[in-house]
Write a protein that binds this DNA or RNA. Structure first.
Lengths: 250, 250
DNA sequence: GCTATGATATTGTCCGACAATCCGACAGGC
DNA sequence: GCCTGTCGGATTGTCGGACAATATCATAGC
């Protein structure tokens, strides 16, 4: 019958107030935030309270600091910040390898198509560079995986669609560990990937969205085949593939 | 020649330590966190420091509290928490209406297909319920928009893929405001949506992934047409469509 | 014009305190 | 037996003040 009446602690309200001003673009990217003491004065709360609010915004990626710097600046959430948070969420929701694969399957062809339609020359160059780096690897498993991810990433950038860019990051992050296993265990993996890269690159160069999209679909489908050949059960939880490199970019 | 050596403040390390234990499942969902005083004792830092760390985890959705409760519990990031953060990120990256639309175009058919393949009876019922609610609306713009979103959401759930569920939320959140305008201004919008709902429902009921996917593609394509008819420029930044309802679920 | 220097401002962290209120136990009334 | 009122203790939210380390900035020196 009644709505629960809500009470918001001061640190929450302070953080919302700042967030709102950032979203309203009254505080713009790159602008330094007032000092903690000054904020405390303006909001008429204690500095400790302000600090708690800042921590929230910091971990949302709305505030950040220059390397080695002390003051906080307004920033927009970086790919890494967004990807970090999202991939943790996936993990805690017990997403499995197949779930991530399915999402890639769904998203990547669209990205490739969009990239083919709208790519600038510079983005094309970045895509080609990633493909070339991958093709040049001998051994170097980790680096090769990085190149594959960079290839996807470059396509995302080339699409000019920030939504794609941001969605890409967490998916790739989760793909990597299992991809490393595939590259290790499946002999023909590298050549299949190279082939797909070549085809996608030339489709994107020719601005042929359909071809780019189709080759990408094939490329991603190959991963699934890779999981089977490499003996990675599709129902493995991604958490289990992620033992390494859990630095956490909160 | 040398990497910049990194210094991490105590609140960061504390928050990472707790996060790591959550990811390692040593702290499991629903479990209450020790009290602030106790954490301060264990980490050998001040309670203020602990509190800053907790705020970070709280805003990442890894910690939360029972309604009206005081203590913090380990939680996994809710749809809302993830969606909130992500949609803010999209907004600050100046995503445009067309970008969100393109992402939907890319993702939703896959979701619908997966839902058709794997839906349980209960999920089907939820999908049907959302469609029925929408069809029953007369006027009630906001509620109708909510129903459309609920329809997408129910499909996401039905897919059984947590990645889809989590990706869906922010996209829908951003879709809503502009969809409201479409429903207002485009007379045939409701009937088109109803038609699509019916077709998708019956495809999902029949477990026909191809049909579900294709009708979904058509459904989303309709939105684009809707933008044009409603006179919403595709290059509008989504931020500008979001004046209302910016509660922010940090 | 660039660099070294030094004063100042700012952050990170600590300590201690207190009010509000949530929690659990306990007693009493229907 | 179940609901309500009461109460003490535990816990959080917030405050004030303090201090060391260091980033920042203006200034003096080359």
């Amino acid at each position: 019958m009644f709505e629960p009446l809500s009470y918001a602690p001061a640190y929450w309200r302070v953080s919302e107030a700042i967030r709102a001003r950032i979203l309203r673009r009254e505080l713009v990217e790159g602008q330094p935030l007032p000092t903690e003491t000054e904020l405390a004065r303006q909001f008429e709360v204690n500095r400790s309270t302000v600090r708690e609010a800042l921590r929230k915004l910091e971990s949302n990626g709305l505030l950040g600091r220059r390397r080695g710097g002390k003051r906080l600046y307004v920033t927009r959430p970086t790919r890494e910040a967004v990807g970090g948070g999202l991939s943790v969420a996936f993990e805690l929701h017990r997403a499995r390898v197949v779930d991530v694969w399915e999402a890639l399957q769904s998203v990547q062809p669209g990205i490739a198509g969009a990239a083919a339609l709208r790519r600038a020359d510079a983005s094309l160059a970045a895509i080609e560079a990633a493909a070339r780096r991958f093709a040049g690897r001998r051994g170097e498993r980790e680096e090769a995986v990085g190149d594959v991810a960079a290839f996807f990433d470059a396509l995302g950038e080339a699409s000019g669609n920030p939504v794609f860019v941001l969605l890409n990051e967490p998916l790739l992050r989760l793909l990597k560990p299992s991809l490393a296993v595939i590259i290790d265990r499946v002999p023909q993996a590298r050549s299949r990937i190279e082939l797909a890269h070549r085809q996608i690159v030339s489709a994107v160069r020719a601005r042929d969205a359909t071809a780019a999209s189709e080759w990408m679909a094939r490329h991603v489908r190959d991963f699934r085949r890779g999981y089977e050949v490499a003996g990675i059960p599709l129902s493995t939880e991604i958490g289990e593939t992620l033992d390494t490199a859990r630095a956490g970019v909160s």
